[in-house]
Simulated scan of single mutants.
Amino acid sequence: MNKIKVGIIGGAGYTAGELLRILIFHPEVEIVFIHSKSQASKDIATVHTDLFGDTDLKFSAALSTSVDLLFLCLGHGDSKVFLSENAIESTTKIIDLSQDFRCSNSNLNFVYGLPELCRKEIQQAQNIANPGCFATAIQLALLPLAKESELKSPIHIGATTGSTGAGQALSATSHNSWRTNNLSVYKAFEHQHLAEINQSLGVLQTNFDQQITFIPQRGAFARGIFSIATLKTTLAEKQLSDLYQAYYESHPFTHVSEQEIDLKQVVNTNKALLYLKKSGEDLMVVSAIDNLTKGASGQAVQNMNLMFGLDESTGLKLKAAAF
């Protein structure tokens, strides 16, 4: 098999940097170009300094149409603009990392790219809408219950993300001096990822109509999402454990732990870890992912692998630092 020729649009941001970290060492990929208007002609490693010594690639202002796959690492709203202004060859597949095509009301043919929900559809897809980071962590915590139509009560979620989740553009709440030794709530009850979460749960549990109360938080760390979902269920803890283990048995990156989990177990990896705890009828589902890998670029590569008939873990066997 010839290597997959890929191009990256919006190459200077965090998700593009993470994508490059993975793709440079992917055995089945050839990176044809990395497009960036702001960094054109500069060495990649001058922006993504962790790649110094690993690549001599440069940013390009020009687009190449001779690629098998195009990754769109653009801001929300910018992917739609890019595709409306640029002619993409019909043979070129697209993986979009923005939120522009995640919900089914999009008028373009994008498949939702959560492998634990849509693996068969992803394998046949021309275009993929990569899921949001919070949405990934939260959906993985709830999908097994939705599959059995066991989401029968309101769902309360508190989830904390690292500063890289805000993107590379500077803002008052992304400065290190503000984040350090600090914690805050933002977009309470109305985070944009709620739409795709509700959409996915409704795919598995067609009568799903429960309220999801989601309180996102900004954490004083760079990478990762730690989510806690609580709801009521009459299922016993052993039943729940068996249900979750069965659902994720064939999915290589999502694991159900019998021990309490922490964020360092997943940072720098494409893993998602889940932990269940029951008290009376109250169920707690803890989930942990890296917002830049399983929550963005790692999941995008996982989708690429599926689209091109590769083992979905190719190039993604990454180890957490742990300490």
Rank of each mutant, 00 (worst) to 15 (best):
D209W: 02
W178G: 00
K5R: 15
G77K: 08
L263C: 07
T230N: 13
N2S: 14
Q210M: 11
L170S: 13
L83Y: 03
A236V: 03
L114N: 02
E89H: 12
C73L: 05
N107T: 07
Q210N: 09
A61W: 05
T15V: 09
A129E: 04
H76G: 13
Q124N: 14
E258M: 07
N207I: 03
L143E: 00
N105M: 06
F189E: 14
G132R: 01
T293P: 00
A220H: 08
D56T: 08
P144V: 00
H35Y: 12
G280F: 09
L97Y: 04
L292W: 01
D56L: 10
S66V: 01
L283A: 10
F101Y: 15
V256Y: 00
A188E: 14
Q39F: 14
G315Y: 03
I157N: 01
I289Y: 01
L194D: 07
E28L: 04
F221R: 04
S60N: 12
L142M: 10
D68S: 04
G10H: 09
K3S: 07
F25V: 01
N86E: 10
L231R: 01
S313Q: 14
F101L: 07
K278A: 09
L235K: 13
S297F: 06
S184T: 04
W178I: 03
T92H: 07
T65D: 15
S177C: 11
I225E: 04
A137E: 04
A236N: 14
I225M: 08
S84G: 12
I31T: 05
A236D: 15
D209G: 14
S36P: 01
S174D: 08
S287A: 12
E89Y: 06
L273S: 01
R218Y: 08
S313L: 08
A146I: 01
L231S: 03
S171Q: 13
A16G: 10
Q168Y: 08
T254V: 12
K120N: 13
T160V: 12
F208D: 02
T65M: 05
V203I: 10
T269H: 02
I128R: 06
E85M: 09
S64G: 12
K42F: 07
H191K: 02
L318R: 12
S84T: 06
Q299F: 02
D282E: 15
G309D: 11
I212S: 05
F110Y: 15
L170H: 11
E150F: 06
Q211W: 08
H255W: 03
D290K: 02
I9Y: 03
A195E: 14
I228Q: 15
Y14P: 00
E249C: 05
A320H: 10
K152P: 00
Q259W: 01
T213M: 11
G224C: 08
H156E: 15
T55F: 05
I44P: 00
L63H: 09
A146D: 06
V286F: 00
G309C: 09
G224Y: 02
F71Y: 14
A45M: 05
Q199D: 13
V266K: 01
R21G: 07
A61N: 15
Q259G: 01
W178K: 05
T234D: 15
L194N: 09
A135E: 14
E30R: 04
E89W: 03
V267A: 05
L243S: 04
K120R: 10
T91R: 11
I155K: 00
S163Q: 12
T234H: 11
